[in-house]
Amino acid sequence: MGYWWIYLPALLFFALMMVFELYTKLGYIKAIKWVLLDLKIPQDPGKSPKATEQIFASLHGTLPPPILWRNRFFKGHMVNWISFEIVGIGGETHFYVRTPEQFSKLIQSQIYAQYPDSEITEVPDDYVNLLPPSLPDDSNDLWGSEMVLSKEDYYPIRTYPEFEEKSSGPDYVKRIDPLASLAEVLSSLEAGEFIGVQLLVRPAREGWVKKGQAEMDKLQGKGSKAGESMLSKIIFEIDKLIPGHFEASKDDKKPEQTQLTSGKQEALKAAEKKMTKIGYECGIRFMYSGPKENFHRTHISGIIGVFKQFALQTTNSFKLYVPSITFGKWPFKKQREYNKKVFFLNKYKNRSLPMKAFILNIEELATIYHLPDIGVRSPMLPRVEAKKGEPPVGLPIS
């Protein structure tokens, strides 16, 4: 223990590097120009979430080439993200997309390509400005949390093909829209109540697939090489300089083949299927606010229940991320809870990156966020009332 100080310079150096990189990232984020798009749903989209899956596949093209370390470290460059949002304000439902300005035209063109009868308008005043500047206050309260996957990223959740069932006739498919329950919760809000669900996404590189494949190889008893971080390598090199250091002997035994149960085999097949599609680094955040005298906690249960329908016991599901939940613990419970609520409101308004990100592929994303079909009959779900068209050729203009 007398040689602990040998590690100090290396640890301090890496700590300073992390602080400086965080500083440059915050500067880069602050400089981003954002645009908020309001999506108005067609009367009958006539399409399954497969159409939205194609939108997410196209938007993956916004992934830049690998960022050079000097640009990442000195300029804070990072992969930009987009927030897909479903919002209920006093019983009325809205679909929003908040995006960096540079992606706005691309997003609009891809949505129109799949949903030509939809309407997209750029919102000059962000809806979050309708919320009180600070919550909780004397008359209003809030509750919020982020969601994470309950298992590893490479295991899939229940997706839209599993919400479909064959009905009478070979070409007729009965589709249960997973957004129907969310639309009902949002339409039940009263004046002064608000629910917002944010799906924060940015394109992921192929690293998650390699990591998933390595984990599956391990489960099947196949060998996989574990990588080491730069900090670990430096610490090990310092260890060699300490008198009395002994190198650990390497075990070259081949891993034994593991006999998997039928349930685990099905889970591995589902994971392999997930990894065949493009992935995004994601975060999910939801918030409910309302008057204190009329604060319906059943709405919170309703939103949690919406995400329960995506659960598959053998593979994956969503759960609340406990560190993000807006409640405090003893001691100073009230003050801690107040601070967490203020912090959460700011994160929601700024569409900040989640505390803990995870990977969803384009099929999973389209299951959670898509334009609902005609079967979702929520009375306060605005739809396009009439189809717009070009004027006839030769129309006289006075």
Rank of each mutant, 00 (worst) to 15 (best):
S139P: 00
L381S: 15
L8Q: 09
I32G: 01
F236C: 06
E146K: 03
I195G: 04
N129R: 08
Q198E: 13
S301K: 13
D217P: 03
E162S: 10
K349A: 08
F56N: 03
E215L: 10
A204S: 15
Q108G: 07
K225W: 13
G88T: 13
A31T: 05
A271G: 10
A311N: 14
T99Y: 02
S352E: 11
L179Y: 05
K340F: 02
K218Y: 08
F246P: 00
V209N: 05
L36Y: 04
G91S: 04
F84E: 08
S109F: 06
Q198G: 12
S301P: 09
M17R: 13
H299W: 12
P156D: 06
R72C: 02
L130F: 11
D117M: 04
P133M: 02
L353K: 06
V128C: 06
Y127A: 02
H77L: 05
K349Q: 11
F95D: 01
D373W: 06
P354C: 04
F103G: 00
P49M: 01
K218V: 11
G283Q: 03
I107F: 10
F103N: 08
H370P: 14
S150W: 07
Y348H: 09
S167I: 08
K292R: 08
G389K: 12
I107A: 00
D117G: 01
Q220Y: 02
L231W: 07
V35C: 05
V97A: 07
V123S: 01
